[in-house]
Amino acid sequence: MNIKSMAAFAAEGSSPEILFWVGCAGSFDQRAQRVTKAFASILEKVGLSFAILGKEEMCTGDPARRSGNEFLFQMMAYNNIQTMNAYNIKRIVTTCPHCFNVLKNEYPALGGNYEVVHHTTLIQELINDGRIQLKEGGSFKGKRITYHDSCYLGRANNVYEAPRAVLEALDVELVEMKRCRTNGLCCGAGGAQMFKEDEPGTTRINFERSEEALATGASIIASNCPFCTTMLSDGVKKFEQEDNVQIMDIAELVAASLK
């Protein structure tokens, strides 16, 4: 893929329409990289000019802040805001709801003011505007799909409908889990839990959630967050359903259905 960096744009004296904030998972995690590429391919196809920060991007500091390490969070935030302000960034899209939340809600108090959208919202807007053209009778038409609300897109930021609207545009059969939207159950990764073992309990949170998702009988669990994707994949494996049920990001579903 030929993905341009902010530095490359700056060297040409131009700037892209939007910054694609890839995030640590999207950059390094092999599963999440597939989502990153799927989303980049959508942007390319649509002809929306975008750039990444590349090596200049750093962790937003989300896991540091939420585990209680405010110093580390503030250091990461300082560096990222310096970088982005130097490029005069106006608009950001990101495929990670944790990054989305920090960039949108927490950087403004530290001097980083940007218009931030989550990729599912941007995709929905592009579909609405007719810029994303979907195949007639696409690969997911009529497929039973359930959608997992991530905490940081849902409750934290009240984005519930855009991802569902995208699924509707794909003509899938959307089946809701019992705990959905504001009542959605966490996948277990947030609050820096991704980076440590669970406390002793009766089961793991991702097992509990995966069980609920599997009970819908869906063949695809649609997600919007790299961490949820990992957690749910592990959960589905635990119930030995990995051959029957796939976890796919909204971006992947759309990328596979482009005209």
């Binding site: 640590c24 950059s27 750093m58 980076f195």
Partner: peptide, 22 residues
Amino acid sequence: MFGNIENNMAPWKLSPDDRDAW
């Protein structure tokens, strides 16, 4: 994880030079 964020700018022990390797 803290050490990794501080040194590698990501919560994992991976080189920051590979951030755009994808």
